[in-house]
Simulated assay, not measured.
Amino acid sequence: MTGYLLRRLPSALGVLLLASFAIFFILRAVPGDPVATLAGSDPSPETVAAIRADLGLDRPVLAQYGTWLADVLRGDLGRSYVIGGEVSELLSQRIGKSVELTIGALVFSLAIGLVLGVLGVTVKNRAGQAVLSAINAISLIVPAYVSGFLLVFLFAITWPVLPPGGHVSVLSDPQIGFQYLLMPALVMALPPAAIVARYVKDGLLQALGEDYTRTAKSLGIPHRRILWRHALPNALPPVLTVLGMLVGTLLGSAVIIEAVFAWPGLGTLAEQAVTRRDYPVIQAVLLFMVAVFVIVQLLTDLAYALIDPRVRLR
Rank of each mutant, 00 (worst) to 15 (best):
T2E: 06
L6R: 13
L17E: 08
L18R: 05
L18I: 08
S20D: 02
I23P: 02
F24Q: 07
I26H: 10
G32A: 08
P34C: 11
P34R: 07
A36E: 15
D42H: 14
P43S: 08
E46T: 12
A53T: 13
L55H: 07
R59W: 05
A63N: 12
Q64Y: 11
Y65F: 15
G66T: 05
T67D: 15
G75L: 07
R79N: 06
S80M: 04
Y81N: 08
Y81M: 05
I83G: 13
S88H: 01
E89V: 14
S92E: 15
V99E: 02
L101D: 07
A105P: 02
V107C: 04
L110G: 02
L110M: 12
L110Y: 05
G113H: 12
G120C: 05
L132Y: 03
S133Q: 09
S133W: 00
L140C: 02
I141Y: 00
I141M: 02
F149T: 01
L150A: 12
F153S: 15
F153H: 15
F155S: 04
W159D: 12
W159P: 08
L162D: 10
G165V: 15
S169A: 15
L171A: 13
I176Y: 07
G177E: 07
L181W: 10
L182E: 07
P184N: 10
A189E: 03
P191Q: 07
A194H: 01
V200C: 03
K201S: 04
K217G: 14
K217C: 06
S218R: 14
L219Q: 10
H223N: 05
I226D: 02
V239E: 02
V239I: 10
L246C: 03
A254N: 07
I256S: 01
I257A: 09
A262Y: 04
P264R: 12
T268I: 11
Q272H: 13
Q272C: 06
A273L: 11
R277V: 02
L287C: 00
M289P: 03
F293D: 05
F293C: 10
Q297T: 08
L298G: 03
L302N: 13
Y304E: 04
L306Y: 06
R312I: 00
R312W: 00
R314H: 04
R314K: 05
